[in-house]
Amino acid sequence: MIAFKNVNKWFDKLHVLNDINLEVAKGEVVVVCGPSGSGKSTLIRCINRLEPIQEGSLIVDNMSVHDKKMNMTTIRAEIGFIFQSFNLYPHMTALENVTIAPMKVRKMSKPEAEELGRKTLTRVGLGDRVDNYPAQLSGGQQQRVAIARGLCMQPKIMLFDEPTSALDPEMINEVLDVMRVLAKDGMTMIVVTHEMGFAREVAHRVVFMDDGQIIEVAPPDDFFNNPQTERGKLFLSSILKH
């Protein structure tokens, strides 16, 4: 479904992605973890070309993402992207937030899009909040609207960039619950997160990154119980200590 082949990326002189090779299969849930500044977010932002890459190839659903001739709308429509800071459109209600892309990109009619929007908002537990503006919703609710916004495009892949990092602790679970259900339904997901409990429970594989490189790729039980590298051990001890 997603294949990185020898991907390299620089911000000026900083080598943010260093020879990345990674394949993610259909229906697979991959959690990416690592210290901050290790290139986790950049890695998933390349998948829908929010960031360009300088070397290598990146294939998503048989389409070459960084090919200049590629029509990005087609690819982006297949990929839902969830941001740390939600990025809901503040001037639109929850329902308008989730229906604008289906109408403008998928060319769905308004009633059709609204029916889908209501159904999807209900699915994330916000069926009674369709007419609220983002400012009237809690952080956890806003992030669930954002997930519904992604789902309304009926994507093949969902990418999550630290979806719970900006949330108060008591709201983290309501978002993770929605993601658990998605994973069980067979969505292909890449999740950048520090929620190690979620990773253990839901992920098929954990990717550990440091310094722009993929250091380890392993099933969660293996990685958490028995990391193979020094850097992996160091990272795990630093996050599990507190």
């Binding site: 929010l50 982006r76 992207f81 941001f83 990025n87 459109y89 604008i100 990109v105 495009m153």
Partner: peptide, 14 residues
């Protein structure tokens, strides 16, 4: 905010 454009870009809006 830049995030508004990123969200719109990510969902395929021109």
């Amino acid at each position: 905010p830049q995030g508004q454009r990123e969200a719109a870009t990510a969902s395929g809006l021109s």
